[in-house]
Design a protein around this nucleic acid. Structure first.
Lengths: 166, 166
DNA sequence: ATTCTTCTTGCATAATTACGCGTTTAGCAG
DNA sequence: CTGCTAAACGCGTAATTATGCAAGAAGAAT
């Protein structure tokens, strides 16, 4: 059987077959064809030798962060985005990139190290800050458009605090 | 109320309020906080003055291609990540890329699916619309600079109509 | 070997989402 | 005005997904 060294924390291998293998197969399947329901996925897996219940697939898809994307002709499962430098923690990445920032009206121009603007812009967007209308990232410059001049001042201060290692 | 000239093909405006506005609000909500179910979204919308049923939200989320992404602590709704470039009429490509748009002064910030901003910007430029002074496309954000605040309002509505599949 | 702990899974069912159908409203032609 | 068509949406329910609980399996510890 498919025995191999267990990783840290891994203390169990199913009697049936390996869960990771099954989940890999799931990604393989949904990556190559349209799958609209867990029951459909169940059938496809069975034809490849895996026999599990819908409940297990529900858990697998959760583990894999596989999204169910709706469309006009029904939903389909879709693998997670490979993703940019998962820009969720702005405190972690902005200090790495930030050089300086200044603003006028409802605009902020933020300078970053070369090539850092895209990441910084994504990070800012992902914050969901209400003052921000949107951002545009070039190579080393991010333009932040705020909803108001007042909000811009507040945001400029916050951005500087975080960027300057705050 | 927010009455305006209907675009081509648009023949109906709800008695309640505009569907596009509601869908914009939905994107706004799920973009700024975690939403785990349509009922939760329904409550959030109600607190903003929209009162619709879960069935309507199911349809809205389908129209908007908003995916339900599972995670360890329950599912959440989130914007899509698939995309395909093109170079046809703006009515053909904008609905493919468009997520939402908002504006201030003579600026419009249009959000697109990841990687879609360049295509959208080119498409906009090629229209030769008089209101547009110029556009700047990043990765998923297009900044449209208009000649006037009045022109911006007009353009914003047109862009939304086209983008939202109108 | 026995016991304890952790991981995995099925089962049954709760929770949630999707959709068919009927109704209402708006635009348009006659 | 009347009739026709299409859009939008609620209602009720089918379809689908998520989860509490219990059982089984593999190690680790005693």
């Amino acid at each position: 059987m498919n025995k191999y060294t267990l990783g840290p924390g891994v203390k169990y291998i199913s009697a049936m077959a390996n869960k990771s293998d099954r989940q890999s197969t799931i990604l393989d399947i949904i990556g190559s064809r349209r799958v609209s329901s867990q029951e459909e996925l169940r059938r496809l897996l069975r034809s490849r030798g895996w026999d599990v219940t819908q409940a297990t697939l529900s858990r697998d898809l959760r583990d894999l962060r596989v999204a169910r994307v709706p469309s006009a002709d029904g939903p389909r499962y879709s693998a997670p985005d490979a993703g940019l430098p998962s820009a969720l923690a702005i405190e972690a990445i902005l200090p790495q990139l930030f050089l300086r920032a200044d603003g006028v009206g409802e605009l902020i121009v933020m300078r970053t190290i070369p090539g850092g603007a895209q990441s910084a812009a994504v990070a800012l967007d992902s914050q969901g800050w209400p003052e921000i209308l949107g951002t545009v990232g070039g190579d080393d410059t991010v333009l932040i458009i705020c909803r108001s001049a007042g909000g811009r001042q507040k945001l400029l201060q916050r951005v500087r605090e975080i960027g300057e290692r705050g």
